[in-house]
Amino acid sequence: MGGGIGLQAFWRPLETLLRNGQLYRRVLVRDIQSTFRGSALGLAWIVVIPLVLVAIYTFVFGMVLSSTFSIGTRTRIEVPLLFFTGLTVFGFFMEVVGRSPNFIRENAVYVKKIVFPLEILPWVLIGTALFKFAINFALLLVFLAVFTGGVPAGALMLPLVLVPFLLMTAGLSWLLAAVGTYVRDLPHAIQALAPIIMFISPIFYSVQQVPAPFATLYYANPLTFVLESVRGLLFFDTAPSAAGLLVFAAASLLVFAAGYAFFQRARPGFADVV
């Protein structure tokens, strides 16, 4: 985008976040508060929702369909925890991707009435989703410690997977926010796609259970790598390969920079269409 991708293209999206740090924090806190203000359970919903989902999925997949992860699950409690892990990762991704297409229009006042660094809005989405992710992930680690007697050392490698994942999600957010502002069908399309994405991502099963010709295809879905790596590190003492990490990091950075560049390019026309 915009005459080749120099190093600056990777730095700019972070630079704006640093430059508008205080404003970003305010808007982020406001966004998190808005979600729960006035509800009786408040922030507890962040935890309640995935736990209810885990209960349902455990019942349906674990007890009704009696599907298990193919590789060595040791205790009964591990299946719901595996589901919880998958849902937490997927929840982060889907929250950002689902909210992005409408987010600029929802904040039309920042486009038309206030001089505002619009490019930090996707960072706000990331921030809110990350906040929920962090709470759920902390809960997961607690469960893991309680039920399996400890958190594996492999957890220290998680940032190598999660940071690129975050950057890729942010890149997608810029892209979807920019396109969604112009194309009103996008939010509906994403809504229709959400359950599909959920089932073609290895959340309730492992990619190893997927028949051979499809398994390779599965890795075209970036969530596959993230889900498999996170579960491997936390449950199965397997680490992602260095090559896998490198490819994933490179692809993520590319999406990150390209998404941002595209957003900035599309942005001058926002005020005309919101």
Binding site: V179, Y182, V183, A266, P268, G269, V273
Partner: peptide
């Protein structure tokens, strides 16, 4: 709005 508009802006 729409795709054509986006293309024009970008």
């Amino acid at each position: 709005r729409g795709m054509a508009r986006l293309a024009r802006v970008v």
